[in-house]
Design a protein around this nucleic acid. Structure first.
Lengths: 337, 337
DNA sequence: GTGAAAGCGCTAACAG
DNA sequence: CTGTTAGCGCTTTCAC
């Protein structure tokens, strides 16, 4: 593994090859300054034939920006962070901006190390993200010298924040169930302590009105089973649809229903939340669920930090991005055009 | 969202505050050069009281290194990349090295853009990783000017590569099953076209000897169900253990067995592969499985790329890192001390 | 139109 | 022991 001593070609070499000064070369390559088209293209040709690539550190030192942003997250599992990261990266890559991924594991000390490292490296901005919309990361990101955008995590009130619109997603789920003719829709969801749980439940109640029923539990398949046992253990008329707080619960519900001989979607329609592929697609039948559009959220976060970094003013506050119904087979029905 | 114009404090300010020259300040802070302890600590105090943080770009420009490495991956799902990334990051964070995450989605053009961007940013090294041990990334990383380490993806023969030891993991699984007294162990795995499938199957056959039986299929729960249908549909004596090629197959197998009234682990023990938490822990009963120690693999990759960057010589070739049996409940038995 | 010179913030010789 | 000097590779006034 010896590294060939291929000297990097500097702008100096390009200038020399093109027979101009370094200053002119710089201007030619950056499409700034004034010069004959001939000179400009001669320099550009020299550059490309030499394979010149500008040293980002030298350039950054002057321009005081690094074409780099940091993505801070405590979502070790990556379930939420990964699509978000993909979106961020996608929005930034053609601007030449790279992304530092910093996993901080809820450890304030680690978080500080990462933030300091990013600051030292002169990141143009930071995107803070997490696994819960209603929790802050264990680090103070205010007064940083670089702009911060909060995505899928709680930030200060005067910050720029991006979250998925849980209420809207919940509305889509219920609406779909109703459009399929379902009348007795129960909501089986996670712990009351999650803001998104209450947000989704609230929207569910608002859509259903009279007869709304919410069962709170944990974010597990296990709870899906228990909820079904509870509902089907009652004397009352059974639900004909169950809207679940996430895909794991939904999978538990579907499995439990099948084990009881209840047909899904024949007798009961089930909707999940998250569109976590590994869970939703493996369920029998595959889950119709709500996708939070995390990738789009990431893209938007990327665009916003960049705008902020460029000095543009961005209205602070919480932006809610719409969710999207993903139709598979657990409800019956076919995708709307 | 206005950015306060907090001027960054430069080493110049520290020097002035401590009443020394910039050169001395630099030496004091980097613990290089010679000077009285008094001077050194006076400078350090000045630095910390001013909240001085060196500008990494300026430093990098001189030292020709950026304290940054790039992690290239085509594993969009993150199932393999995330633990790996966590390991890389963990190994590097206290060396002050940050990680660029570049998701390239099997797109050669995108890959090139990312590689170029990393090179422009003077990364100290690149770690190439993927979702398959036997496939190369769609980009040529040879002759780069920075060291490259391949982790969980195929690299050139003379490169430094890190993979999990599939054969060893397979051996651990079979050994565990045998130590539990299982006699008729069948291997249900993925497509023959995966090198890791053949590697695991080969080791399985070697351990079992006479009576080994391998069923190839797809990496899905669905296939787990089908395999059980096939095995239990035969007249022959049933297996008393099934070693699966991954956790999804194992979950399918366990579910299918339960649906047939076969007790797991009472009648049949099941072992998975991957230790993908969301699958392994949600299976009823939770899966005993083989963990590929991807995080450790990431740590090692981080260490190696840094060593290479520091000019150390690292023996090229493929390093196989051991897997680890994770005992849950699908086999019976209790963890060995 | 083009180039000489200054300098981004820091480190590394080399003097003193 | 400490300070002066010279850059790292690039962009950017400002003369010519």
């Amino acid at each position: 593994m010896s590294v060939l001593p291929t000297k990097r070609v500097r702008i100096y070499d390009v200038a020399q090859a093109a027979g101009v000064s370094v200053a002119t070369a710089s201007k030619a390559l950056n499409d700034t300054g004034r010069m004959t088209d001939e000179t400009r293209s001669r320099v550009k040709e020299a550059a490309s034939s030499l394979g010149f690539r500008p040293n980002a550190m030298a350039r950054g030192l002057i321009q005081r920006r690094s074409f780099t942003v940091g993505l801070l997250t405590n979502d070790t599992y990556g379930r939420f962070t990964l699509p978000l990261m993909a979106g961020v990266s996608e929005a930034l890559v053609d601007q030449g901006v790279s992304v530092f991924l910093c996993a901080i594991e809820d450890d304030p000390a680690l978080a500080k190390i990462h933030v300091d490292a990013m600051l030292d490296k002169q990141v143009d901005g930071i995107i803070a993200s997490g696994k819960r919309i209603d929790r802050q990361l264990p680090v103070d990101l205010t007064n940083l010298s670089v702009p911060v955008v909060y995505a899928f995590t709680k930030g200060p009130d005067d910050a720029v924040s991006l979250v998925s619109d849980d209420a809207e997603g919940s509305g889509e789920a219920v609406e779909w169930l109703q459009s399929l003719g379902r009348q007795r829709i129960v909501h089986v969801t996670g712990p009351k302590t999650f803001a998104s749980v209450e947000e989704r439940a609230g929207a569910y109640r608002a859509s259903i009105g009279e007869g709304a029923r919410v069962l709170y539990g944990t974010w597990s398949e296990q709870w899906g089973h228990e909820a079904v046992a509870q509902l089907w253990g009652e004397a009352a008329e059974k639900p004909d649809a169950i809207f679940c707080g996430n895909d794991q619960i939904a999978r538990g519900v579907v499995d439990a229903l099948r084990e009881r001989g209840v047909a899904v979607p024949g007798d009961v329609s089930v909707v999940g939340f998250d569109n976590w592929e590994i869970v939703a697609a493996a369920t029998r039948p595959p889950l119709t669920t709500i996708d939070m559009n995390l990738k789009e959220l990431g893209r938007e976060a990327g665009r916003l930090v960049l705008a902020l970094a460029a000095g543009e003013t961005v209205e602070p506050g919480i932006r809610k991005l719409p969710c999207q119904l993903v139709i598979r087979q657990s409800c019956g029905g076919v995708p709307r055009s």
